[in-house]
């Protein structure tokens, strides 16, 4: 029963991979396995099953790293710091993946690799924060200091994120689904007319999308578990020597 999650992950990921590539895209979907055609997107709409989960895991990993960082500050338990740093390491990998997959896709949809749209900017900031977090950790030699200061830095860096949520939409025109844009004529904020931004998932796409989110989340927890167990063993064996 303990391995149930791993089999669930296997089944879900298989369904997601099949669901990403197999369903044909037609103008008027009639059966459940046909995706609707979105002009300007066509097959490229399928990115959502792989790109969005990586971005979601980046955020989840950051929150977990901060949560265990705060718990370290409260309990002074070294294993909390180990959990925190392994969540951050995994988050860093997914952050790079979200950035790279997004920019490859943007090249073919929006014309160039990088646009500084609000979401792109925030993932870039997150990448910088992750980078700074690891740079800080590598510059501290005492274990206790490293745990304490990196936990504090993760809190301080997290405090700036609400500002990005308020600032970015004002400064830049969004390109991601759900963005608003500023009407050049009246200066009012309005819903955009761009096909990517108007993008709404059909019911069958939504099912694959949520299965994909669940699958990637299980994958994350599995890898996180492995990583912090290995680091814990390393920690114990170093103490014995």
């Amino acid at each position: 029963m303990k391995n149930f999650w791993k089999f669930l992950l296997f089944v879900l990921m298989t369904i997601v991979i099949i669901g990403t590539f197999v369903p044909p895209i037609v103008q008027y979907p009639k059966s459940f396995f046909e995706f609707p055609l979105i002009p300007g997107l066509e097959d490229k709409a399928r990115i959502i099953f792989f790109h969005v989960p990586t971005a979601w895991l980046t955020v989840l990993a950051y929150l977990l790293a901060m949560f265990y960082g705060i718990r370290y500050l409260k309990r002074k338990d070294m294993y909390d710091d180990i959990k925190s740093v392994s969540a951050a390491a995994l988050g860093f990998v997914f952050c790079i993946l979200a950035t790279v997959t997004g920019s490859v896709w943007a090249k073919f949809t929006w014309g160039s690799f990088w646009h500084w749209d609000p979401r792109e900017t925030s993932i870039f900031i997150l990448l910088l924060i992750y980078g700074a977090y690891f740079a800080l950790r590598s510059a501290l030699d005492s274990e206790e200091k490293r745990a304490r200061l990196s936990a504090i830095y993760s809190i301080i860096a997290f405090l700036t994120t609400p500002f990005f949520i308020f600032i970015m939409p004002r400064l830049m025109i969004g390109l991601h689904p759900g963005s608003l844009e500023i009407d050049p004529a009246t200066g009012q904020v309005r819903a955009s007319s761009n096909p990517v931004i108007k993008f709404e998932m059909a019911a069958n796409m939504r099912v694959v999308f949520f299965l994909s989110l669940i699958a990637f989340t299980i994958l994350f927890f599995w890898f996180w578990n492995l990583a912090h167990r290995i680091l814990k063993l390393e920690h114990v064996s170093q103490k014995e020597i």
């Binding site: 900031i125 700074a132 800080l136 860096a157 700036t160």
Partner: peptide, 8 residues
């Protein structure tokens, strides 16, 4: 360290 914090 300061850049992401000061950027907003």
């Amino acid at each position: 360290l300061a850049f992401p914090v000061l950027l907003p």
